[in-house]
């Protein structure tokens, strides 16, 4: 097998978050390839990271705000979006200050509710979702600006 083909296999591993792959060539040859999880971004890491600054996420560059003090919050599951309280007593607005861990909204799927929390202390720059919107996986929900950057 040529080096370019091995590189292609590595790319498949890397693209899909697989840690190990085994190929059979002909009836006798077998190639087993494994990578260290720490050598790349695994899919499970990606899933966690999707609620964090997307600048760190492989394959999300198109949607990443190049302004480094901005943090995008995207949906990590498909569902219906609602703001935090049914009575809308908390209804985030652009310009609101939010603390790390503060609840911003929730996504309702068939059997679960996913709370959307602020990953940083910051200010809401953009709200890209309305109540009862159907949200895809990866849909942009909020853009936050880091408080420490605002102060500086």
């Amino acid at each position: 097998m040529e080096i370019s083909q091995l590189e292609q296999i590595y790319q498949i591993l890397s693209d899909n978050g697989f840690d190990e792959i085994e190929l059979r060539l002909g009836t006798t040859d077998r190639i087993k390839m494994a990578r260290s999880v720490s050598s790349g971004v695994s899919q499970s890491q990606k899933n966690t990271a999707i609620l964090n600054n997307t600048a760190n996420i492989e394959g999300q560059s198109k949607e990443t705000n190049t302004d480094s003090n901005k943090t995008e919050i995207r949906s990590e599951l498909v569902g219906v979006f609602q703001f935090m309280d049914e009575d809308e007593s908390f209804f985030p607005k652009v310009g609101d200050e939010v603390a790390m861990g503060e609840k911003l909204g929730k996504i309702l799927s068939l059997n679960s509710i996913k709370e959307i929390k602020s990953p940083i202390d910051g200010r809401i720059c953009e709200i890209s979702v309305k109540k009862n919107d159907i949200i895809d996986y990866g849909h942009l929900l909020f853009v936050l600006e880091d408080s420490s950057d605002i102060k500086s």
């Binding site: 899909n16 599951l77 498909v78 569902g79 799927s109 159907i134």
Partner: peptide
């Protein structure tokens, strides 16, 4: 059309919860 997950099949095309959620929503 709705994006239901990343490339990995177990997180998208094999994800029953996500598929049934879309069926319900739509």
């Amino acid at each position: 059309a709705y994006c239901i997950g990343p490339a990995r099949p177990d997180l998208s095309y094999l994800n029953m919860e996500a598929i049934l959620t879309v069926a319900q929503m739509t």
